[in-house]
Amino acid sequence: MEATVLQAAAACLERAYETGELASPLIDTYPDITLEDAYRIQQRVVRGWVERGDTVRGHKVGLASVAMQRQFGVDQPDYGHLTASMFYLEHQPIPAGRFLQPRIEPEIAFVLGAELRGPGVTVADAARAVDFVLPALEIVDSRIKDWQISIVDTIADNASSGGVVLGSTPTKLGDVDLRLAGCVLHSGGAVAETGAGGAVLGSPINALVWLANTVGPLGVSLQPGHVVLPGSMTKSIPVSAGDTVVATIAGLGSVTAVFSGGTR
Protein backbone atom coordinates (compact mmCIF):
# COMPACT_ATOMS: atom_id res chain seq x y z
CA MET A 1 0.00 0.00 0.00
CA GLU A 2 1.17 3.51 -0.74
CA ALA A 3 2.12 5.77 2.15
CA THR A 4 -0.93 7.97 1.64
CA VAL A 5 -3.24 4.96 1.88
CA LEU A 6 -1.48 3.70 5.00
CA GLN A 7 -1.88 7.12 6.57
CA ALA A 8 -5.58 7.21 5.68
CA ALA A 9 -6.11 3.82 7.32
CA ALA A 10 -4.20 4.91 10.43
CA ALA A 11 -6.24 8.13 10.59
CA CYS A 12 -9.44 6.08 10.48
CA LEU A 13 -8.37 4.14 13.59
CA GLU A 14 -7.15 7.29 15.33
CA ARG A 15 -10.58 8.88 14.82
CA ALA A 16 -12.19 5.86 16.45
CA TYR A 17 -9.89 6.24 19.48
CA GLU A 18 -10.63 9.96 19.73
CA THR A 19 -14.36 10.07 18.99
CA GLY A 20 -15.60 6.59 19.93
CA GLU A 21 -17.08 6.17 16.46
CA LEU A 22 -16.37 2.60 15.39
CA ALA A 23 -14.67 1.99 12.05
CA SER A 24 -15.66 -0.43 9.32
CA PRO A 25 -13.35 -3.42 8.86
CA LEU A 26 -10.20 -2.32 7.06
CA ILE A 27 -10.26 -5.51 5.01
CA ASP A 28 -13.51 -4.28 3.44
CA THR A 29 -12.18 -0.82 2.64
CA TYR A 30 -8.74 -2.04 1.55
CA PRO A 31 -9.22 -5.61 0.23
CA ASP A 32 -5.58 -5.87 -0.90
CA ILE A 33 -4.16 -5.03 2.54
CA THR A 34 -1.34 -7.36 3.67
CA LEU A 35 0.01 -8.32 7.09
CA GLU A 36 3.00 -6.06 6.46
CA ASP A 37 0.66 -3.18 5.64
CA ALA A 38 -1.29 -3.81 8.84
CA TYR A 39 1.83 -3.69 11.01
CA ARG A 40 2.94 -0.48 9.28
CA ILE A 41 -0.46 1.05 10.11
CA GLN A 42 -0.06 -0.09 13.74
CA GLN A 43 3.38 1.52 13.90
CA ARG A 44 1.98 4.81 12.62
CA VAL A 45 -0.75 4.84 15.25
CA VAL A 46 1.65 3.99 18.09
CA ARG A 47 4.17 6.55 16.86
CA GLY A 48 1.45 9.18 17.11
CA TRP A 49 0.76 8.23 20.73
CA VAL A 50 4.45 8.50 21.60
CA GLU A 51 4.73 11.88 19.89
CA ARG A 52 1.84 13.07 22.08
CA GLY A 53 3.57 11.96 25.28
CA ASP A 54 2.76 8.29 25.86
CA THR A 55 5.55 5.73 26.38
CA VAL A 56 5.94 2.14 25.17
CA ARG A 57 6.23 -0.07 28.26
CA GLY A 58 6.01 -3.50 26.68
CA HIS A 59 4.35 -5.70 24.08
CA LYS A 60 1.53 -8.20 23.86
CA VAL A 61 1.06 -11.35 21.87
CA GLY A 62 -2.51 -11.77 20.73
CA LEU A 63 -4.46 -14.72 19.42
CA ALA A 64 -1.90 -17.16 20.79
CA SER A 65 -4.34 -19.85 21.91
CA VAL A 66 -6.62 -22.07 19.86
CA ALA A 67 -9.58 -20.79 21.91
CA MET A 68 -8.88 -17.18 20.93
CA GLN A 69 -8.14 -18.03 17.30
CA ARG A 70 -11.43 -19.90 17.03
CA GLN A 71 -13.29 -17.09 18.80
CA PHE A 72 -12.13 -14.52 16.26
CA GLY A 73 -11.74 -16.72 13.17
CA VAL A 74 -7.98 -16.34 12.68
CA ASP A 75 -5.19 -18.88 12.38
CA GLN A 76 -2.04 -17.18 13.72
CA PRO A 77 -0.82 -14.96 16.55
CA ASP A 78 -0.05 -11.27 16.26
CA TYR A 79 1.57 -8.63 18.44
CA GLY A 80 0.91 -5.10 19.64
CA HIS A 81 2.39 -2.43 21.87
CA LEU A 82 1.62 -1.73 25.53
CA THR A 83 1.91 1.91 26.55
CA ALA A 84 2.03 3.53 29.97
CA SER A 85 -1.52 4.84 29.67
CA MET A 86 -2.87 1.29 29.33
CA PHE A 87 -1.85 0.13 32.82
CA TYR A 88 -4.41 0.12 35.65
CA LEU A 89 -4.07 -0.84 39.31
CA GLU A 90 -5.89 -3.92 40.52
CA HIS A 91 -8.84 -3.37 42.90
CA GLN A 92 -8.99 0.28 41.79
CA PRO A 93 -11.96 1.45 39.66
CA ILE A 94 -11.34 1.27 35.92
CA PRO A 95 -13.67 3.57 33.94
CA ALA A 96 -15.49 1.22 31.59
CA GLY A 97 -16.42 4.22 29.48
CA ARG A 98 -12.81 4.61 28.38
CA PHE A 99 -13.30 1.59 26.13
CA LEU A 100 -15.57 0.94 23.17
CA GLN A 101 -16.24 -2.81 23.15
CA PRO A 102 -14.20 -4.15 26.08
CA ARG A 103 -13.54 -7.79 26.76
CA ILE A 104 -11.16 -9.28 29.32
CA GLU A 105 -8.87 -12.29 29.42
CA PRO A 106 -6.40 -13.86 31.90
CA GLU A 107 -2.68 -14.05 31.17
CA ILE A 108 0.70 -14.73 32.75
CA ALA A 109 2.70 -11.51 32.41
CA PHE A 110 6.47 -11.62 31.96
CA VAL A 111 8.53 -8.78 33.42
CA LEU A 112 11.93 -8.71 31.77
CA GLY A 113 15.20 -8.25 33.61
CA ALA A 114 17.40 -8.30 30.52
CA GLU A 115 17.12 -7.36 26.85
CA LEU A 116 15.83 -9.90 24.33
CA ARG A 117 16.83 -9.24 20.74
CA GLY A 118 15.92 -11.62 17.92
CA PRO A 119 16.24 -13.36 15.61
CA GLY A 120 17.73 -16.49 17.05
CA VAL A 121 16.25 -16.21 20.56
CA THR A 122 15.77 -19.62 22.18
CA VAL A 123 13.64 -20.75 25.12
CA ALA A 124 16.79 -20.73 27.24
CA ASP A 125 17.53 -17.13 26.23
CA ALA A 126 13.98 -16.08 27.05
CA ALA A 127 13.98 -17.83 30.43
CA ARG A 128 17.23 -16.10 31.40
CA ALA A 129 15.79 -12.70 30.45
CA VAL A 130 12.66 -13.00 32.62
CA ASP A 131 12.96 -11.33 36.03
CA PHE A 132 9.60 -12.56 37.34
CA VAL A 133 6.04 -13.34 36.29
CA LEU A 134 2.72 -11.91 37.49
CA PRO A 135 -0.93 -12.87 37.15
CA ALA A 136 -2.55 -10.42 34.76
CA LEU A 137 -5.81 -9.44 33.16
CA GLU A 138 -5.74 -7.90 29.72
CA ILE A 139 -8.58 -5.67 28.60
CA VAL A 140 -8.95 -6.12 24.87
CA ASP A 141 -10.92 -3.63 22.83
CA SER A 142 -11.62 -3.08 19.17
CA ARG A 143 -12.10 0.06 17.19
CA ILE A 144 -13.67 -2.10 14.45
CA LYS A 145 -17.46 -2.27 14.50
CA ASP A 146 -18.96 -5.32 16.26
CA TRP A 147 -15.56 -7.01 16.54
CA GLN A 148 -15.83 -7.97 12.87
CA ILE A 149 -12.07 -8.36 12.61
CA SER A 150 -9.81 -10.20 10.24
CA ILE A 151 -6.17 -10.77 11.16
CA VAL A 152 -5.17 -7.55 9.36
CA ASP A 153 -7.84 -5.57 11.19
CA THR A 154 -6.65 -6.59 14.63
CA ILE A 155 -2.98 -6.11 13.74
CA ALA A 156 -3.58 -2.59 12.41
CA ASP A 157 -5.60 -1.84 15.57
CA ASN A 158 -2.56 -2.57 17.79
CA ALA A 159 -3.65 -6.18 18.28
CA SER A 160 -6.96 -4.97 19.78
CA SER A 161 -5.19 -3.63 22.86
CA GLY A 162 -7.14 -1.83 25.56
CA GLY A 163 -5.62 -2.07 29.03
CA VAL A 164 -3.61 -4.17 31.47
CA VAL A 165 -4.14 -5.00 35.14
CA LEU A 166 -1.15 -6.64 36.84
CA GLY A 167 -1.33 -8.65 40.02
CA SER A 168 0.92 -7.77 42.95
CA THR A 169 2.53 -11.16 43.70
CA PRO A 170 5.75 -11.58 41.68
CA THR A 171 6.93 -15.16 41.21
CA LYS A 172 10.25 -16.38 39.88
CA LEU A 173 9.98 -18.31 36.65
CA GLY A 174 11.59 -21.42 38.12
CA ASP A 175 8.97 -21.64 40.85
CA VAL A 176 6.02 -22.40 38.56
CA ASP A 177 5.38 -24.73 35.62
CA LEU A 178 3.83 -22.34 33.13
CA ARG A 179 2.43 -25.15 30.99
CA LEU A 180 0.50 -26.78 33.81
CA ALA A 181 -0.59 -23.63 35.63
CA GLY A 182 -4.39 -23.79 35.70
CA CYS A 183 -6.55 -20.69 35.55
CA VAL A 184 -10.09 -19.93 36.70
CA LEU A 185 -11.71 -16.70 35.52
CA HIS A 186 -14.55 -15.41 37.69
CA SER A 187 -16.94 -12.64 36.75
CA GLY A 188 -19.45 -11.43 39.34
CA GLY A 189 -18.48 -14.32 41.59
CA ALA A 190 -19.36 -17.00 39.01
CA VAL A 191 -16.93 -19.09 37.00
CA ALA A 192 -16.81 -17.68 33.49
CA GLU A 193 -13.91 -19.60 31.91
CA THR A 194 -11.16 -22.06 32.78
CA GLY A 195 -7.87 -22.77 31.09
CA ALA A 196 -4.16 -23.45 31.53
CA GLY A 197 -0.84 -22.00 30.45
CA GLY A 198 -0.32 -24.81 27.96
CA ALA A 199 -3.10 -23.31 25.83
CA VAL A 200 -0.73 -20.47 24.89
CA LEU A 201 1.43 -21.89 22.07
CA GLY A 202 2.15 -24.93 24.25
CA SER A 203 3.66 -22.68 26.94
CA PRO A 204 3.61 -18.92 27.48
CA ILE A 205 7.42 -18.88 27.23
CA ASN A 206 7.04 -19.96 23.60
CA ALA A 207 5.01 -16.83 22.94
CA LEU A 208 7.82 -14.71 24.40
CA VAL A 209 10.30 -16.44 22.08
CA TRP A 210 7.97 -15.93 19.11
CA LEU A 211 7.62 -12.25 19.91
CA ALA A 212 11.35 -11.59 20.27
CA ASN A 213 12.13 -13.37 17.01
CA THR A 214 9.26 -11.66 15.17
CA VAL A 215 10.06 -8.08 16.14
CA GLY A 216 13.84 -8.52 16.05
CA PRO A 217 14.16 -8.32 12.25
CA LEU A 218 12.21 -5.04 12.44
CA GLY A 219 14.90 -3.53 14.63
CA VAL A 220 12.85 -3.84 17.82
CA SER A 221 14.20 -5.45 20.97
CA LEU A 222 12.37 -6.29 24.19
CA GLN A 223 13.75 -4.08 26.95
CA PRO A 224 14.53 -4.68 30.65
CA GLY A 225 11.58 -3.67 32.80
CA HIS A 226 9.11 -4.11 29.97
CA VAL A 227 6.00 -6.20 30.42
CA VAL A 228 5.14 -8.89 27.87
CA LEU A 229 1.69 -10.43 27.76
CA PRO A 230 2.00 -13.79 25.98
CA GLY A 231 -1.66 -14.44 25.21
CA SER A 232 -4.87 -15.51 26.86
CA MET A 233 -5.31 -18.79 28.68
CA THR A 234 -9.06 -18.80 27.98
CA LYS A 235 -11.60 -17.19 25.71
CA SER A 236 -12.21 -13.52 26.41
CA ILE A 237 -15.45 -12.39 28.06
CA PRO A 238 -17.28 -9.04 27.74
CA VAL A 239 -17.14 -6.54 30.60
CA SER A 240 -19.05 -3.39 31.48
CA ALA A 241 -19.48 -0.89 34.30
CA GLY A 242 -20.14 -2.60 37.63
CA ASP A 243 -18.33 -5.82 36.77
CA THR A 244 -15.65 -7.36 38.97
CA VAL A 245 -13.41 -9.93 37.29
CA VAL A 246 -10.89 -12.14 39.11
CA ALA A 247 -8.32 -14.43 37.52
CA THR A 248 -6.77 -17.06 39.80
CA ILE A 249 -3.71 -18.81 38.39
CA ALA A 250 -2.20 -21.80 40.17
CA GLY A 251 1.20 -20.96 41.61
CA LEU A 252 0.85 -17.25 40.85
CA GLY A 253 -2.10 -16.05 42.91
CA SER A 254 -4.90 -13.83 41.71
CA VAL A 255 -5.54 -10.48 40.07
CA THR A 256 -8.74 -8.42 40.24
CA ALA A 257 -10.19 -5.83 37.86
CA VAL A 258 -13.06 -3.61 39.00
CA PHE A 259 -15.00 -1.62 36.41
CA SER A 260 -16.79 1.60 37.24
CA GLY A 261 -19.00 3.93 35.22
CA GLY A 262 -17.68 7.07 33.62
CA THR A 263 -17.33 8.45 30.14
CA ARG A 264 -14.61 8.77 27.59
Rank of each mutant, 00 (worst) to 15 (best):
L208H: 00
R143M: 12
G198P: 01
L166K: 11
L173S: 13
V121W: 07
A247I: 07
V111T: 07
P217H: 04
E105Q: 15
G231T: 03
G97H: 09
A127M: 13
D54Q: 04
A64M: 10
F87S: 05
G216P: 02
V165K: 02
D157E: 08
G197R: 04
K172I: 02
G58I: 06
E115D: 10
L116E: 00
A67M: 15
D78T: 14
Q7K: 08
A11K: 04
G197H: 05
V50E: 05
T171L: 14
G262I: 04
R117A: 10
D37K: 01
G58P: 00
F87W: 05
S236T: 13
L201M: 15
Q42V: 12
S161P: 07
L185W: 06
E2C: 04
M1Y: 06
A84C: 07
E115W: 10
R179I: 12
R47A: 15
Q76F: 12
G73D: 03
R15A: 13
I155S: 02
S85M: 14
V228M: 10
L180S: 13
W49K: 13
V130W: 02
Y88P: 00
E18F: 00
V74E: 01
V133G: 05
H226W: 12
R52L: 01
F87C: 07
N158V: 11
G189D: 09
L211H: 01
A212N: 00
A9K: 08
G167L: 04
A3F: 14
S236F: 09
R15C: 08
L222I: 06
G20Y: 13
N158D: 12
E18A: 13
L13Q: 06
D125Q: 00
Y39M: 14
A192V: 07
V45E: 05
G58Y: 00
T169D: 01
E2Q: 09
W210Q: 12
S65Q: 07
I108K: 05
P102E: 02
I104F: 10
I33D: 01
V45F: 02
A38L: 11
A127Y: 01
Q76K: 15
I108E: 09
I27C: 09
